[in-house]
């Protein structure tokens, strides 16, 4: 059932990836940056699944699973960092204020 060709998948993934990248670059709020990162990860995962379907190999979905695990870890740690920063009295969640190391 040639519903969705590999080329279309790549096209969609590219657009999705670029949108995510733009989000990471544009937004200063770390929450939005995390969501944009998730969009980018999804784009990568979509390419894997698409390639798996194209060459009929289960490895694509295996990679999808691993990306899922990676995304879960990334989100959990990222959100924990946001909570930690927020608790320390940096209420704006501005990613640009975190440029000074304090031991």
């Amino acid at each position: 059932m040639p519903v969705f060709s590999f080329n279309d998948t790549l096209l969609l993934a590219t657009i999705l990836f670029s949108v995510g990248l733009a989000g990471v670059l544009i937004r200063r709020n770390m929450l939005f940056m995390l969501m944009s990162l998730d969009i980018m990860l999804n784009a990568a995962a979509l390419v894997f699944v698409g390639a798996g379907a194209r060459w009929h190999d289960a490895a694509g979905q295996v990679m999808f699973l691993l990306i899922l695990a990676l995304a879960a870890v990334e989100t959990a740690v990222g959100l924990a960092i946001i909570l930690c920063l927020h608790a320390r009295g940096r209420p704006t969640l501005d990613a640009d204020t975190g440029n000074l190391l304090q031991g």
Binding site: N7, A53, H56, Q61
Partner: peptide, 12 residues
């Protein structure tokens, strides 16, 4: 250049 699609086979 990757165009020229092949129909995907049975689902995985």
């Amino acid at each position: 250049p990757l165009s020229g699609s092949m129909p995907s086979l049975a689902s995985i």
